[in-house]
């Protein structure tokens, strides 16, 4: 099951540059929430705060509260938190020294799982969830780098799912992919919300419209508007949202 997230007065800095300014946002469980906005609006920083990845950058700072299923994430060990909040990055980043199979179970192995049978089951289950199993089942010992870009990205999704997180963050997961591969990923996201709470950052407004239950519009580090996707795209409350949606800037 996915978990709910609530974000309270979240502020983030990168050096002296404030990239997030007082964000308040409720994120429903088992929903796909899209984060849209122009480049540099803070949407990437926002999702990177949720698994405390933002803090790993030198010169970064965070203030505020993020509550995951009733508990503040800043009171948890980030290593433990990241097992509950998985992440898929913009560019596929499989580990090049590992085979497809080893990539999928990399996170599970870090957690100390050594049983071969269990690992194989987890690998198959995760690859099936990532809709990649049929394409790779006969060459699990091949390098992850032997796959196409779209397959590599689904491999990275499988790797994230294998750890069984409750929230999945996706930072423009399809922006480096061709239309067919993008379609695969989008179909996957719609299925995955059965089990996960999904936050997806996207540059592509059609993509948000196609897959997201709710959409949040960020601008200059502020959350301008957050609501059901249909409402944001057809009847936005804020003039700036409307201007962005209709392509007047961004």
């Amino acid at each position: 099951m996915g978990h709910t997230l609530s974000v309270r007065q979240l502020e983030a800095w990168y050096g002296s540059n404030q990239t997030l300014k007082g964000i308040n946002m409720e994120i429903a469980s088992n929903h796909v929430t899209a984060i849209i906005g122009p480049s540099g609006c803070g949407k990437s920083t926002f999702v990177r705060c949720i698994n405390r990845m933002h803090e790993t950058l030198p010169g970064s700072k965070v203030k505020g509260e993020i509550i995951l299923d009733g508990e503040s994430i800043y009171e948890q060990d980030p290593v433990v938190l990241r097992k509950m909040v998985g992440m898929v990055f913009q560019k596929p980043n499989p580990f090049p020294s590992m085979s497809i199979y080893e990539n999928v179970v990399a996170g599970v192995r870090l957690n100390g799982m050594r049983n071969k049978k269990t690992l194989q089951d987890i690998a198959e289950k995760s690859l099936r969830m990532a809709a990649l199993w049929d394409e790779v089942k006969d060459r699990l010992n091949y390098s992850g780098m032997s796959l196409s870009g779209g397959q590599q990205q689904r491999l990275c999704i499988a790797r994230a799912l294998a750890v069984e997180p409750s929230v999945l963050l996706m930072d423009e997961p399809a922006s480096a992919l061709d239309p067919i591969a993008t379609m695969h990923i989008e179909g996957l996201v719609r299925q995955l919300k059965e089990d996960y709470t999904i936050l997806i950052v996207t540059h592509n407004m059609q993509q948000a419209a196609r897959i997201a239950d709710s959409t949040a519009f960020f601008l200059n580090g502020e959350l301008v508007e957050h609501g059901p996707t249909s409402e944001i795209f057809t009847n936005p409350n804020d003039k700036r949202t409307e201007d962005y949606i209709t392509g007047r800037f961004g």
Binding site: K83, G86, F89, K91, N93, A106, L110, R159, A160
Partner: peptide
């Protein structure tokens, strides 16, 4: 990206 991939897995 490689480091972040590992960190994101916990």
């Amino acid at each position: 990206m490689q480091r972040e991939a590992a960190l994101a897995l916990g």
